[in-house]
Amino acid sequence: MLHKDAVEVLTRWDAPVGEQQDLRAHYLRHLAEHPDGMWRACRPEHLTASALVVDGAGERVLLTLHRTIGLWLQLGGHCEPGDQTLAGAALREATEESGLTGLTIDPMPVRLSRHQILAGGCAGTYHLDVQFRVTAAAGTAYVVSEESHDLAWFGVDELPAGLDDSVLQLVASGVR
Rank of each mutant, 00 (worst) to 15 (best):
A87I: 08
L168M: 10
A25K: 14
R29H: 10
P160S: 01
Q21G: 14
L2C: 03
V53F: 03
Q21F: 00
E8Q: 15
V130C: 11
A32E: 15
W39S: 06
V171N: 11
T135Q: 14
H66T: 02
Q74Y: 05
D22S: 13
L170F: 08
T85P: 02
T140A: 11
V17N: 07
H26E: 12
P35Q: 14
L47R: 02
A119C: 06
T135R: 15
E80L: 13
E19R: 15
Q84C: 01
E19P: 03
P16N: 13
E158M: 03
V134Q: 07
P107S: 03
V167Y: 04
A136E: 05
E146Y: 01
A152D: 11
G162M: 10
A15W: 00
H3T: 05
L159W: 04
A41S: 12
H78K: 02
D14T: 13
E147P: 00
Y142N: 00
R133L: 00
L91K: 05
T135K: 15
V144C: 13
G37T: 08
S166F: 09
H46W: 06
V17H: 13
A49V: 00
L168F: 07
L91T: 11
R60Y: 00
E33P: 02
S173D: 14
S173T: 06
F154G: 09
T104Y: 02
